[in-house]
Amino acid sequence: MEIINATILANVSNTELGPCDMYCRIILIILYGVVLLGGTTGMVMMSCMMFKRNSQSVVATFVLNIIALHSILLVSLPFRVSYYFSVTWGLGSFTCRMVSSIIYSHMYFTFVFYVAIVIFRLLIYFKKLQMQQLKRHHAVVLSVTVWTVGSLIFLPVFFLQYGTDPRHSEQQRCFEFYRDLNRREIVIMNYSMIVIMMTMVVILFLLQLIVIFQLIKALWPDMWTHQEYRAQIKSFFFLLVIVVCFIPHHAFRIHFIQNYSERENPKLVLYNEICVALTTVCCLDMLCFTSGVIH
């Protein structure tokens, strides 16, 4: 902690600190550092495990997509940590927007694959879908579709809308695109994503709880010996990851949009940056699986 303090303070004398102050940066460095270490460990362990099993299931294909998304995000985290150490961004506005877009694209793409796993297992439970009807190539086609459609929608919107304010490059700052929230189209886009995500999570969370309670009632006390129950618990775990990592960001976003102004309230900026950083904690999900936290 003292080393981090000394490093940041040494740079503050030569660089304007901006709305995210020293303590804000310390918190972000620690949080991103933990995610980088734990996430990388989880990715390596899960990749080795899946390589040994060579599973051809639909869920395994979705998990491989999540691993790929986590890996891309983890590659971008050293850029963020370096920025919060040096308090300046010298890699240009395009690189800044690219690194920044990764954290948001990771969140939404990961959310889609989490939801796909949950819906897939719910459809099987409610007899709306038979395992025999789906082969791996169906999951591959769905994955390619998600990546293609998501890229065509998300990336152009982000690069054309966010970070176009010239102050970002002039002041050698990065990851301060909340300044664009004074634009009506950006506010509408944020509110739309908030409503879509929260609505889906509430519906799936209630359905998943109903299924789990039904299975407990039917299989008690030997429910853990049944594969169907364990599969639904894993789906519930993915929903918990969404609730813990993604929902705080979107819930606080409502308050942030309504109260943020050009005066740049330091506390609001701090809480917003922490909520954004919290979305990366989902990278620890594979570590939870491989370490036995969730079986």
Rank of each mutant, 00 (worst) to 15 (best):
G38H: 00
V44P: 08
R53G: 10
I26Y: 10
S55D: 04
I67N: 10
I27T: 14
G39A: 01
H70Q: 13
L36S: 06
Q56V: 06
I26Q: 14
S57V: 00
L17W: 13
M46F: 06
Y32K: 08
V58L: 03
L37Q: 03
K52V: 03
I26G: 12
Y32A: 06
Y32H: 12
M50P: 08
G39R: 02
D21L: 15
M22P: 07
F62H: 03
M22Y: 09
I26N: 12
M43R: 09
L17F: 08
D21W: 06
Y23G: 15
F62C: 04
Y23Q: 12
Q56E: 13
V59L: 07
V63H: 10
P19S: 15
M43D: 13
V44G: 05
L28Q: 06
V63S: 09
L28K: 01
S47A: 08
H70K: 11
T61S: 09
L31G: 11
A68F: 10
Y23D: 06
I66M: 15
S55G: 09
C20T: 13
Y23L: 09
C24I: 02
G39Y: 01
Y32P: 08
Q56I: 03
I67A: 07
G38N: 04
M43K: 06
F62W: 05
K52G: 09
R25S: 07
A60V: 00
V44W: 03
V63T: 13
T41W: 11
S57P: 00
L31W: 07
M22T: 14
V58C: 11
N65H: 07
G42F: 02
M50C: 07
C24D: 07
L64S: 13
G42I: 01
R53C: 11
L28W: 00
K52P: 09
V58E: 06
H70T: 11
S55Q: 03
L69C: 14
F51I: 12
T41R: 10
V35C: 11
G33W: 01
D21Q: 13
L64R: 11
N54I: 04
M45T: 01
I30S: 02
R25P: 14
A60Y: 01
C20Y: 15
I29E: 11
H70A: 11
V63C: 14
G38C: 02
M49Q: 13
G33L: 00
C48G: 13
M22C: 14
Y23T: 15
Q56N: 14
A60E: 10
I27R: 08
D21I: 04
I66C: 13
H70R: 11
V35R: 02
T41S: 09
V34M: 08
T40V: 04
N54G: 06
L28E: 05
